[in-house]
């Protein structure tokens, strides 16, 4: 039995793009040659700016995006699911094991369904329960685990605040008893006090239900607090990956360093200036050759040798992986 729950091997995801109907079809590589292994029971963090490919990677692992190259393997107790060759029948099975929590709790819940029906829907669609009574039991069980008031189950989502709605979304994702959860910016839309509450709830549920999370976020301080291991993405590539304490105390890649220094400190006397990156993340349609970060890298050399560098992670310390180009320039 494998100690990992998900292995991603040389994964690339491309999308077709056509500027207008006369122009040639282009391929946009949203995710490029990714290798990650997610250990059972871990809280795996994926950070990066908008356009870095973190959501695409999460969706590819769930089988919601087509895989262009490489593979994703989900290791269940009895068997493995290979998402490149998965049949639609197996996919139904896989959906019970791997679930997604969305960002916006206002958009994710149907306004015309009661909370009970929202949480029960996966059970009915996946035909997990056989009777209405059994369904109700499961719904009540998971709702109380997610600290929802059971009397609220008859109400509609509009009656709830953002934090309560996010708890409903979590209950819906967990009702089929999955083992692996992708949480895509699940606290980004919430106020800080509610964000803290939801993060604590996710942690608590992880212990109670033996869950493994892939936690996607743009907020480094949140990721630093909840995740055991963190991968930093930039323009479809992972540029650095390490256990979170290592990564945040000793970042190696210039992009990670810049990201960390960009977090505004809550101490007004700490006016240490952010390492300011020039410009913005380039378009994925036209990514830089060689090191993708070279157009914004403060260490990029004048002779442009980064143009011909081939990207790839190397292990600089045990478990601490950094992109080759970032090792040299750091």
């Amino acid at each position: 039995m494998s100690e990992n729950i998900v292995s991603v091997n040389n994964l690339s995801v491309s999308f077709d793009y056509q500027e207008n109907f006369l122009s040639k079809k282009q391929k946009i590589k949203a995710v490029n040659n990714i290798n990650i292994k997610i250990k059972k029971g871990s809280f795996f963090g994926l950070v990066g700016e908008s356009g870095s490919g973190k959501t695409t990677l999460g969706r590819a692992i769930l089988g919601a995006n087509k895989i262009s190259q490489g593979n994703v393997i989900f290791h269940d107790d009895e068997r493995d699911y290979d998402l490149t060759t998965i049949t639609s029948r197996e996919m139904k099975d896989y959906r019970k094991k791997a679930q997604l929590i969305f960002q916006d709790p206002y958009a994710a819940l149907s306004p015309r369904m009661t909370v009970r029906d929202i949480i029960a829907e996966p059970l009915e669609v996946m035909k997990i329960t056989n009777s209405r009574q059994e369904t109700d039991e499961k719904v009540r069980e998971i709702a109380s685990k997610c600290r929802l008031n059971l009397e609220h189950l008859r109400r509609y989502p509009h009656a709830f605040s953002g934090g309560q709605r996010q708890r409903i979304s979590i209950a819906r994702a967990l009702v089929s008893n999955p083992k692996f959860i992708v949480a895509d910016e699940s606290v980004a839309a919430l106020d800080v006090s509610i964000q803290a509450d939801i993060l604590n709830l996710l942690k608590q549920l992880q212990n109670e239900l033996n869950l493994t999370y892939l936690f996607i976020s743009h907020d480094l301080s949140v990721v630093a607090h909840v995740c055991d291991i963190v991968a930093v993405m930039y323009l479809g590539h992972i540029v650095e990956m390490a256990p979170s304490r290592k990564l945040f105390s000793n970042p190696k890649h210039p992009y990670t360093k810049a990201l960390l220094s960009s977090i505004p400190s809550i101490d007004p006397e700490n006016k240490s200036k952010a390492i300011e990156l020039e410009g913005e993340i380039p378009s994925a349609m036209n990514p830089p050759s060689g090191c993708v970060f070279r157009t914004r890298c403060p260490h990029a050399s004048a002779d442009g040798k980064e143009v011909n560098v081939e990207m790839g992670l190397v292990e600089v310390e045990p478990d601490h992986l950094v992109d080759r180009c970032g090792v040299n320039c750091g």
Partner: peptide, 10 residues
């Protein structure tokens, strides 16, 4: 994004 936020704040 945070890196852009840092630029705009400065």
């Amino acid at each position: 994004d945070v890196t852009i936020q840092a630029q705009v704040i400065n």
